[in-house]
């Protein structure tokens, strides 16, 4: 039987929707429209001179090797964050799925990092890995590794990837665990009787059946890597050294706030918006087809 809510008055539904729509318009559409508008302007910081320059800001961006470099950096960063985040949390969920005793303790320990704000996570990891005083730096130096992410761009990338992934593992873990527990045990048993060992059972049965969850998490993790990691990067490397960790969203902030280049920053926002829309459409169109429900 279908549950339908029937409104007797003509205006009540609209009145109920109005607050949400108002918020969406004020906090999402209006700034977005303004960003698109600014993207076509060249203006000084205070808005005292504005000049319509058409696509000039966009052209300048694509001619700027640092902007193009930021694309590459973002791609590397989001691939690392999404894949390690998913792989590690899948491993943990698979292991947690088998545990009977103390299961609650493990799950709690694995879930709480999600409550930590991104900036705090960044600072936490920055401290542990601080080139002079960090605990992990000390251990690494003892093993003969020269750890100095203030100079070494690759190390800085590693640091922000670790801090970002750490936070996201909890979220992925929860979904994977739920997904695993929704697979009927009899399927695994049937596969075992059919002769599949643990690894084959995982890859031919469990993993395909987890594909809705995996796909969902892929989308979420990539969007997370694109946007929510801003706090981590701002609290640690600020896009450095030498732009090694300057992902697109950070560059938008940097150019808009620190460099007061509102036209360039807005143009970047617009491009970023298109990228994410495209990514999401691709994911839903093509990856979705292979998903088993």
């Amino acid at each position: 039987m279908e549950k339908r809510v029937v409104f007797r008055s003509a205006w009540l539904p609209y009145a109920l929707l109005a607050p949400q729509i108002a918020i969406t318009i004020v906090f999402f559409f209006w700034p977005a429209v303004q960003a698109v508008w600014f993207a076509f302007q060249l203006q000084d910081a205070f808005g005292l001179h504005t000049e319509f320059v058409g696509l000039q800001n966009f052209e300048a961006l694509f001619a700027d090797e640092h902007y193009l470099g930021s694309f590459r950096t973002t791609a590397v960063f989001s691939v690392l964050v999404a894949f390690s985040g998913i792989a590690i949390s899948l491993l943990l969920a698979t292991m947690a799925d088998r545990v009977l005793r103390g299961a609650l303790a493990y799950k709690t320990l694995l879930i709480w990092p999600y409550a930590v704000a991104p900036a705090i996570a960044g600072v936490l990891w920055a401290f542990m890995f601080a080139p002079s005083i960090g605990i992990v730096t000390y251990v690494l130096k003892g093993m003969g590794v020269d750890w100095n992410w203030i100079i070494q761009g690759d190390q800085a990338m590693l640091l922000v990837v670790m801090a970002s992934v750490w936070k996201q593992i909890s979220y992925n873990f929860l979904f994977f665990l739920a997904g695993l527990q929704s697979i009927p045990k009899s399927l695994i048993e049937a596969a075992a009787i059919d002769g599949a060992g643990p690894a084959r059972r995982f890859w031919t049965i469990v993993f395909p059946l987890l594909s809705p969850t995996t796909f969902f998490l892929l989308v979420v993790n990539i969007v997370y890597a694109f946007f929510d990691t801003f706090g981590v990067i701002d609290a640690t490397t600020q896009g450095g050294p030498a732009q090694a960790t300057q992902i697109l969203v950070y560059k938008v902030y940097y150019d808009g706030v620190k460099a007061a280049d509102l036209g360039g920053s807005s143009a970047q926002s617009v491009i970023l918006m298109f990228i994410v829309i495209t990514l999401t459409v691709i994911q839903f169109r093509f990856v979705e087809r292979k998903v088993q429900y």
């Binding site: 100079i151 761009g153 450095g240 050294p241 030498a242 150019d255 620190k258 460099a259 280049d261």
Partner: peptide
């Protein structure tokens, strides 16, 4: 003008020298 950005550019280039790049 925009020396906030300018200074960071100078520092980036200095960093690449210190890193031996």
């Amino acid at each position: 003008g925009n020396f906030v950005q300018g200074r960071e550019v100078i520092e980036e280039e200095m960093e690449s020298v210190f890193a031996g790049k």
